[in-house]
Lab assay of single mutants.
Amino acid sequence: KNAAQIVDEALNQGITLFVADNRLQYETSRDNIPEELLNEWKYYRQDLIDFLQQLD
């Protein structure tokens, strides 16, 4: 998997990933985040941060 796929997957589930103060953050109206997504975000944290910062 790559960062773009993970960001896309999150968006499809109503979750927006973004970077604030060099930390990976998310916004969602969901009550909870599936644990497998959280684990994936932790595992790919630096890739996601790098990818999202390139988009800014």
Rank of each mutant, 00 (worst) to 15 (best):
Q13E: 10
D8R: 15
I15K: 00
E36Q: 10
I49K: 04
A10F: 03
I6W: 02
L17Y: 01
D31K: 05
S29Y: 11
V19F: 14
I6L: 11
E40T: 08
L11K: 14
K42A: 15
T16L: 13
P34Y: 04
P34G: 06
L17H: 02
V7T: 04
N32Q: 12
L24T: 01
L38K: 07
N39H: 09
Q54H: 11
N12Y: 09
L48K: 00
S29F: 09
T28M: 04
V19P: 03
A20F: 12
D50E: 13
E36I: 10
A4W: 11
I49D: 01
K42S: 14
L52A: 01
Q25V: 10
Q25R: 09
R23D: 15
L38A: 06
I6Q: 02
D56I: 10
Q5M: 10
D31E: 12
Q54T: 13
N32I: 12
E35Y: 08
E9H: 07
N2R: 10
E36C: 05
Y26E: 01
N12A: 15
Y44Q: 03
A10R: 00
E40P: 01
D47F: 07
L48T: 00
T28D: 03
I33F: 05
Y43S: 09
D8V: 13
Q53A: 10
R45G: 11
D8A: 15
E40Q: 07
D50I: 10
N2V: 09
N2S: 15
L11I: 09
F51Y: 15
L37Q: 04
D56S: 14
T16G: 04
W41A: 02
L17A: 01
N2M: 10
I49N: 02
N12R: 15
R23S: 15
Q46W: 07
D56W: 07
I49E: 04
Q54M: 12
F18T: 11
P34A: 06
Q25K: 10
D50G: 06
P34N: 07
L52N: 00
N32W: 13
D21S: 06
W41K: 00
I49A: 02
E40W: 04
D47V: 13
W41I: 12
R45N: 14
A4V: 06
T16F: 15
D8C: 14
Y43W: 11
R45E: 15
A20Y: 12
Y43V: 13
I49M: 09
L11C: 09
N22G: 15
D56N: 13
T16Y: 14
Q13Y: 13
D31N: 09
L55D: 11
L48R: 00
N22E: 08
N39A: 14
Y44C: 02
Y43K: 11
